[in-house]
């Protein structure tokens, strides 16, 4: 524990390219880039699957088998296969981000389509009966009703990304995981523990941020039902 305190007390660790602010920045930046790409892919696809009911079985199947796929193995395979394809500056970053996206898509996808499907059938019927067009039903009824599950899916994806981005330091991705990997290589337990603590803090902070976002954007009329709706696989385990 003393090593941990020393690490944080050392001013050298608070500046420069290996300093804490820079590493936090990289960790967050890579995470947000991956999340952004995953959102662009998964939300429209989830809306399509949820709204039409098409491809539901295969989406669920893929999401489940991805959960069983060990992320560390996946990360290493993709980096080894893809590294030759990228120019030098992107050689580790791009494959790692690709894996982050790959892992973030299933929870968002599952959250979105189960959310849309679980929108109260009678509310959807009522909207149709009132003369809403399909697109209006989607925009004004299904999506707002699906928001709690969509946000919960995004939250799961975010945790998955932050967690995997830590591990990705093993394949040289910049970020907080580097403290753990480098610390391990130099048997510097203080540095490892500091990295782990920072990662945990970042993850917790993001979790709280998402809880807050959920409070702000989800209609209070829907909040009660969140607990009742079980959504297998939308919140992925930290990896």
């Amino acid at each position: 524990m003393s090593g941990l305190v020393e690490f944080f007390a050392d001013p050298a660790n608070w500046s420069g390219s290996t300093g804490i602010p820079m590493r936090v920045w990289y960790h967050l930046m890579y995470s947000l880039i991956a999340l952004g790409i995953a959102l662009v892919i998964a939300v429209p696809l989830g809306i399509y699957v949820g709204h039409t009911g098409r491809g539901e079985a295969s989406v669920a199947g893929i999401a489940n088998s991805l959960r069983a796929l060990p992320t560390l193995g996946l990360l290493i395979v993709v980096v080894m296969l893809a590294a030759p394809l990228f120019s030098s500056s992107l050689v580790f970053t791009a494959p790692a981000i690709l894996v982050l996206v790959l892992l973030a898509v299933p929870p968002i996808l599952t959250g979105t389509y189960t959310g849309i499907q679980s929108a109260d059938r009678s509310a959807v019927d009522a909207a149709r009966g009132m003369g809403y067009k399909p697109s209006q039903v989607l925009l004004h009824v299904q999506l707002p009703c699906a928001l709690p599950l969509i946000i919960s899916g995004i939250r799961g994806a975010m945790l998955q990304i932050v967690s995997t981005a830590t591990v990705a330091a093993y394949v040289s991705l910049n970020g907080l995981g580097r403290y753990i990997i480098d610390g391990r290589a130099n048997s510097d337990f203080g540095q490892m523990a500091a990295g782990a603590a920072l990662v945990a803090l970042v993850a917790l902070a993001l979790e709280l941020a998402f809880l807050l976002i959920g409070r702000l954007v989800v209609s209070p009329g829907l909040r009660r039902s969140v607990r009742r709706t079980r959504m297998p696989g939308a919140v992925e385990p930290a990896a």
Partner: peptide, 14 residues
């Protein structure tokens, strides 16, 4: 659950 596993493994000994 939020704590990434690698961080958890490293923090536990401490």
């Amino acid at each position: 659950y939020t704590v990434p596993s690698l961080a958890f493994f490293v923090l536990l000994p401490g």
